[in-house]
């Protein structure tokens, strides 16, 4: 697995979220891809425990349509993000799990005329598709998942 290509993929994904361009971003996911933001530290179970977000492609598509809907008042505000990605580690490839890549990400979100900072450990499971990758799962562990959260209308 080419580390440089993986890094390039992470940066490209972050770029799409920074803008944000959810139409293109959703297509980075495999058909059975999952976006998961747990609501507790070291959360093991996305189904029998609450999460902030646990979206498959269907929910991502619903969320994307809501995001651009003209009558979604919480989405009338401009949203822009800046992802900084570091501490990238690539685990050896696993036949079933794909390639697991962990990184630390600091995301500054501009929303409702305020800047906020999110700090998270992000775990990508990637599968190779031709020259490129597809995301099997993106897991975003906030450093404070159980703290009171403010409205967040964009994926980190």
């Amino acid at each position: 697995m080419n580390r440089e290509r993986i890094e390039e993929f992470l940066y490209r994904e972050a770029d799409l979220l920074d803008r944000p361009d959810l139409d293109s971003w959703v297509n980075l996911f495999a058909e059975n891809g999952i976006y998961w933001m747990p609501a507790a530290e070291d959360q093991q179970d996305p189904i029998n425990h609450i999460s902030h977000i646990y979206d498959d492609r269907v929910m991502m598509e619903i969320r994307r349509r809501n995001f651009i809907h003209p009558r979604a008042s919480s989405k009338e505000w401009e949203v822009r993000c800046s992802h900084v990605i570091g501490n990238i580690r690539v685990a050896p490839e696993d036949k079933d799990q794909g390639t697991t890549v962990t990184s630390n990400q600091h995301v500054v979100v501009w929303y409702r005329e305020e800047q906020r900072l999110y700090a998270c450990k992000v775990t990508h499971r990637l599968e190779v598709e031709g020259e490129d990758f597809k995301i099997l799962e993106k897991r975003v562990d906030l450093i404070n998942p159980s703290a009171p959260q403010q409205s967040l209308i964009i994926y980190l």
Binding site: M37, A39, I47, N48, H49, I50, S51, H52, I53, Y54, I62, R63, N66, A72, S73, S74, P148, Q149, Q150, S151, L152, I153
Partner: peptide, 29 residues
Amino acid sequence: PDSMLQRTLLYSRLINSAMGMVGPDDLEV
């Protein structure tokens, strides 16, 4: 059965989460 709790959690996540599909529009108003 567990499916009942799973539905409850799905509801809480979709509707009541700060990252949900309903709560943020309520808070906005």
